[in-house]
């Protein structure tokens, strides 16, 4: 870690205002790094699947998200990394509407749905879908895959017969046989269940999908399958994705951009290539050198 101390702090934060403001100041092109893609919050609102600015979330006395500003550009996969307790899951859940922001703005496709009410809010909510971590508890054990997927399309009727074609297409997208629609969750392996959960989230072609540690409960070979699936789907799926993970190597394989969180703040964000090759913040450096098998990794 001694090496990190040699990095001039100016490289991280050329302007005053603390590390959490990085995204805010990159919005001004002149202040940002040379690569314009590194300024995710800069584009017009319509090009962002989701964006948050100056978001604060408090649970009682705990200040969990501190002045978070970031964006998920339409059609991209943004990785959100950080250790447990860093607030990455809280950010994901705030975007879906499970957590309420204490202050700040949450825009989905340019609209602030935390301020909406009633039917419109319900509709807007369907633009953001959530894939939970554990494939064993995310599917109702007493419902067939067909029923589960039909519910995503039509929360009121949820009739799998009506939507047979759409269900078959959704299953095909995650490389499952259409006959899977007739089966119950216990008839599938963990990896297959996670595919069903992915199919359900994509069913509505939402603007944004939040994938909350979706590979961390899986065996490495199954994880590799899911990664391959996500990579293969890039051309056919329009939804943007916020890929929450603690595994930097997985993030590198799946994502275009990365956001690094530390103690409730965003400490660094940008395209994978530049952040991984030239990390600025000490915490990002520590993260990268902690991955077993990475160049900086050593047990001595």
């Amino acid at each position: 870690m001694n090496a990190n101390a040699q990095t001039p702090p100016a490289a991280l934060d050329p302007q005053p205002g603390g590390p959490g403001r990085r995204a805010a100041h990159t919005a001004a092109p002149a202040a940002g790094p040379a690569d314009p893609a590194a300024a995710p919050a800069a584009g017009p609102a319509a090009l962002q699947a989701a964006s948050v600015s100056n978001l604060n979330v408090r649970f009682g006395a705990a200040h969990v998200l501190k002045d978070v500003t970031m964006a998920v550009p339409a059609g991209t996969v943004v990785g959100l990394v950080g250790e447990s307790g860093s607030g990455k899951s809280t950010l994901g859940k705030t975007l879906v509407g499970i957590n309420k922001p204490s202050s700040g703005e949450v825009l989905i496709a340019g609209e602030d749905f935390t301020k909406m009410r009633g039917r419109r809010r319900q509709q807007m909510r369907r633009e953001v879908q959530y894939i939970p971590q554990d494939p064993y508890s995310s599917l109702s054990p007493r419902r067939t895959t067909g029923q589960t997927l039909a519910e995503a399309l039509d929360p009121h009727g949820a009739n799998p017969v009506e939507h047979r074609k759409a269900i078959a297409a959704a299953l095909e997208r995650v490389k499952l046989d259409p006959s899977a629609a007739e089966k119950y969750p216990h008839q599938f392996s963990g990896g297959q269940r996670q595919r069903i959960a992915i199919a359900r989230a994509l069913m509505l072609e939402p603007k944004l999908v939040i994938a909350d540690e979706i590979t961390s409960a899986l065996d490495v070979s199954v994880q590799a399958d899911i990664i391959r699936l996500l990579q293969g789907m890039r051309s056919t799926v329009d939804s943007a994705m916020l890929f929450i993970s603690h595994n930097l190597a997985v993030v590198q394989q799946v994502c275009d951009e990365v956001v690094v969180m530390f103690q409730g703040r965003i400490v660094e964000q940008g395209p994978i290539e530049s952040v991984y090759r030239d990390p600025q913040h000490d915490y990002t450096k520590k993260l990268l050198s902690s991955v077993p098998g990475s160049p900086g990794f050593s047990l001595d």
Binding site: Q223, I227, R277, L288, S289, G296
Partner: peptide, 22 residues
């Protein structure tokens, strides 16, 4: 199993990390 392990591809090693490698 080896192929399934996601590994970091860091390209040219950043100068700052060079100190830690033996």
């Amino acid at each position: 199993l080896l192929a399934a392990i996601p590994t970091l591809e860091l390209g040219p090693v950043p100068a700052t990390a060079g100190v830690a490698t033996p």
